[in-house]
């Protein structure tokens, strides 16, 4: 048994993706490239607006910066079955993780959704924002390209 190495500031919480594969959140990395972590839910309109807006430009962001977006759904047992249909129907290319009992949400100190974090290539949270208004994605993009 080897101890868990904390890459940066991400807490060690086990989450499943939509296919049921488990991921230790602390060990997520993007080979030294930045990651965006966005907490959302199927019942949260601003969350969906944010992720749909980013989706329109996501390919360009990936080409330019190598970023990977991880969308953490806090939908509970009532609505978690709505996550996969929604994500696929919208055609999101993100890694979607399920946090049905808010374990990661608590560990990351998220009060309410949307809450978006920008993590640099060393696993350090360099920016976060607890809201979404049209135009907020521009600030995220500026921070991302400024890394």
């Amino acid at each position: 048994m080897f101890s868990i190495l904390i890459l940066g500031q991400l807490p060690s919480v086990n989450l499943k993706d939509m296919e049921g594969n488990s991921h230790n959140f602390a060990k997520l990395n993007n080979n030294g490239k930045p990651m965006i972590i966005s907490f959302w839910a199927t019942w949260c309109k601003p969350c969906k607006a944010e992720l749909n807006t980013i989706a329109e430009e996501y390919e360009d962001w990936v080409d330019e910066t190598g970023v990977k977006l991880i969308a953490v759904s806090i939908d509970d047992a009532r609505s978690s079955s709505r996550v996969e249909p929604y994500v696929n129907a919208q055609g999101w290319e993100y890694l979607v993780l399920m946090d049905p009992n808010s374990d990661l949400r608590r560990a990351m100190g998220v009060n309410n959704v949307p809450h978006t974090f920008l993590v640099n290539g060393e696993g350090k949270i360099v920016w976060d924002h607890n809201n979404y208004s049209p135009g907020d994605e521009e600030e995220l993009y500026e921070k991302l390209t400024g890394l």
């Binding site: 079955s81 709505r82 996969e84 249909p85 929604y86 696929n88 129907a89 055609g91």
Partner: peptide, 15 residues
């Protein structure tokens, strides 16, 4: 029970 089919741009789900 929950049964679903989804692909890019389309999803159907029954519970």
């Amino acid at each position: 029970f929950n049964l679903g089919y989804s692909k890019k741009g389309f999803a159907i789900d029954l519970s």
